[in-house]
Simulated assay, not measured.
Amino acid sequence: MNRLPFEVLLQVFEYIPFAEFGLLYDVFAQTLVDEAVVYKLGKNRTLPIVSLISTNLHELATDKVNRRNESSLSMYYASYDPSHRYIWTLPDFSCSQHYFKVKDAYVSHGKLVLRRPHDNTLFSQKSLVSLWDIRKRFPPTRAGSFSGASEYSRIKSQELTLHQPGCVLDSCLVPSSTNSSVKKISLGDNTSENTRIGVVGKEVKKDEALLKRPALPSNYTRQVPKAGADGSICSKSSLLVPTYPDPTCGYFLVERLAIDIPTFLKLYC
């Protein structure tokens, strides 16, 4: 097969499940197999390739939930950065499912993890951050002036970048008290100083400046989801998500997720 034209190999590899791609690296050059992974992803851009999972919907929730009290958000292939072997993904900005509601709930051991779509076995996942590390950046919904809530209310948004080996997650935290939308976002806006969680050091900061992030939609605006006439958020509700009283204290807007090829393939093994 090494003598076959490159284009033919890509088309052949397209029919091989991601779970078997590890074997291809034993036979073919890494760059060739990497290209095959990207080619396969690019042919199915309308299908999610990874899911961001909140393991406790009472702390971090979307409208997509399961019977394990988990909540999820789908991520779709956007671009590839060969210098870091990063697969960049974006949420579906055309609907309301590009954010998590942050709940003012008790502290538990919930986590934000990565899994392959429709994974019911929980056999393989990648942990990104504890839900409390996100929740603690918002004041309680009933906080008084002594809690620091009054100071926080002046903050319109806060960029948050999560770093873990093999993963980078760009996000933005918006408190529920924010009434007006924040400026439009372009690729250059995320080069400003922000908060980082996870693996942080000189090498991380150096590499981050070189990351080839995909552009966000030109009409994307960081803002609190639009409320209806009754004050409720305009999105599909779920019987599994508590709605009254509403404990939402803010929103965790997911903007980009990068996952390197080895980490991505491990999710499918």
Score class of each variant (00 low, 15 high):
155 I>H: 09
198 G>A: 07
194 N>K: 14
176 S>F: 14
234 C>D: 01
158 Q>N: 11
195 T>G: 11
141 T>L: 09
173 L>V: 05
185 I>R: 07
184 K>S: 08
222 R>Q: 15
240 L>H: 03
252 F>N: 02
247 P>E: 12
206 K>F: 11
253 L>N: 09
253 L>K: 06
148 G>S: 02
163 H>G: 06
213 R>C: 02
121 T>R: 06
224 V>Q: 03
215 A>V: 09
156 K>C: 10
191 T>R: 12
232 S>P: 02
176 S>T: 15
147 S>P: 05
133 D>W: 05
200 V>R: 11
253 L>H: 10
216 L>N: 03
131 L>F: 07
245 P>T: 02
229 A>T: 08
232 S>K: 01
117 P>R: 03
170 D>M: 14
228 G>C: 04
216 L>W: 06
156 K>H: 11
127 S>N: 08
197 I>W: 01
209 A>E: 13
170 D>Q: 13
155 I>M: 11
247 P>R: 14
168 V>I: 12
203 E>T: 12
242 P>E: 06
251 Y>C: 01
206 K>M: 11
153 S>R: 06
240 L>D: 04
154 R>S: 14
179 N>L: 14
158 Q>Y: 07
227 A>E: 04
225 P>K: 00
238 S>V: 04
160 L>G: 02
171 S>W: 00
202 K>W: 15
169 L>K: 09
245 P>F: 03
155 I>G: 12
162 L>S: 13
189 D>Q: 12
150 S>A: 15
156 K>T: 10
161 T>L: 08
186 S>L: 00
179 N>S: 14
196 R>Q: 13
214 P>S: 00
150 S>C: 14
175 P>N: 01
231 G>Y: 00
223 Q>D: 15
221 T>G: 12
161 T>I: 09
116 R>G: 10
149 A>D: 12
206 K>R: 15
205 K>W: 15
183 K>I: 14
172 C>S: 11
208 E>A: 07
134 I>G: 11
251 Y>F: 05
193 E>P: 13
